[in-house]
Amino acid sequence: MLNGLHSNAFASLLAWSTLILMLAPVAGEATTVEEDMLWTGGLRDAYFGDRPITESDDLIVLDIPKRAENAAIVPISITAQIPQTTDRYIKTIYLIIDKNPGALAGKFHFTPKSGRADLAFRVRVDAYTPVRAIAEMNDGELYMSRRFIKASGGCSAPAGSDLDAAMARLGKIKLKTQGEMKPTEPTLAQLMISHPNLNGLQMDQVTRLYAPAHFVRHIKVSLDGEEVFSAETGFGISENPSFRFYFVPEGDGELTADVTDTKDLHFSQTLRVSAPGQQKLAQE
């Protein structure tokens, strides 16, 4: 195990030095190579092996602030540049924050029923780091949108400025839709979960022990039993996780969110939705 790690590290160092040599004449590029050390030196292989990844904003665009004064709650948004169709759709988006302990902040799954694979949520950022959103298509192709953020201390920062309030409403869920709902057109939904999302990185100065991690691990949103959005999340997600995503309503239905945390606590919320055409009929 140790040997493996060592040889991996050595190999990546070699690869990195080679890259530096190759790119040395281009000053601007050298910085990027240095920034991407963790990615090229192991993260990429760990999550994607030797699968080709196209770095491009043609498929998804990652939007994050260049600098965040509050690293414990950094807004992230990902905008898909293609619609979700049954033939071609974005199946999964990985969000990786290279320098976070636990670099994979989450894996987010979409279906053709999502309509659009857009997503907004908030993360903790521990150091100046590249952030990457990688879209996996239904045929397995991978596309990456990469940004760099200046923020630090978000992981060891105290979870809640008002921890008591957060704990008091642990598991409370708000599920709502926004804008006018039209049948067969993607509708924006928001899922908010009241949860401290303790990441196990905050040390108690007195006991020198870390508060045990306790965070939201799995989310599934279904429309009448059919999945429209789901996620496996890590402790890189900010406290009181909030997600914005799309789904395609078809007449009257029930939108249900099921949430599970690391203590196997389950939280659930259902929202009745109806596309306006149907609603009008019902009123008349």
Partner: peptide, 15 residues
């Protein structure tokens, strides 16, 4: 205050 110090002390020392 003690809880706030316990949660933030390490970060403050580092900074």
């Amino acid at each position: 205050l003690p809880r706030a110090l316990a949660l933030r002390g390490d970060l403050y020392l580092e900074r």
